[in-house]
Amino acid sequence: MVKPPPKSRGPNKLFLVILGIIAVVGVALIAMQAGGGPTPKIVAELPPGDAGKAQPYVYGRPDAPVIVAEFADFECPACAQFATLTEPDVRKRLADAGQVSFRFYDFPLEQHRNSVLASLSAACAADQNKFWEMHDRIFAGQDAWASKPGESDGSANRRASRLFSEYAKQIGLNESAWSTCVEEQRHLERIQANRQLGIQRQVRSTPTFVIGNQMVPGAISYDALKRLVDEALARRDTTARSAATQ
């Protein structure tokens, strides 16, 4: 009589125990870092006006109680994610409500070949009071104009240039004035100064936010940003109260 094959056994128990220990330790280490969101760093507040040659683009009341500054690169995907998903809420619920002054500082990264061109395009739209319209259009179309691996600089720039011209037309800019401004790189100094301010402020990645006196890297959620704005407002109230009692 032929014996039936033994039932299939899995790998030995010791091995499974080792795998289990590694999995538990690994998940525990990850869990220790999760949940808290980005850790803010205390920094000096940005001045209400311009900082030297650095000039941000301002949305909302310039004298709002809290300044929310963003150092961003138009070609950075995390910046596009923030601009398209979170920023509309920040503008509507915080800036339009007069709580914050939202400020955009260019921080073009060296590895992004169309970033400076995008910053120039937005800066030239600002000359016609349409910075935010251009900002939104550029971020919304990032997938189409961002440089691709293996693509030559010239080809990447030409494609982006063509698309930015289309955006200029779509948002109703005076095209000839806008394209002359871009070609002459009229606002290059402002862009470089904005970036330089970020470097001085130890911005290491994009986007990075300075909310009141707290610096936070990464595309933070609306809730996290609102929490930091509330903290800044509370700190401001406490300072005002203690000044009044003295």
């Binding site: 949940g35 850790t39 995907p77 590895q111 961002a146 440089s147 990645s205 994009t206 990464g218």
Partner: peptide, 24 residues
């Protein structure tokens, strides 16, 4: 996806790489 806030990265620039356009 934003669940972990800061990367523990003693060597190199993890944030620069993971926020670049090639991280997708």
């Amino acid at each position: 996806v934003g669940v972990v806030g800061d990367l523990s990265c003693s060597i190199g620039s993890c944030e620069t790489v993971n926020t670049s356009q090639w991280a997708t």
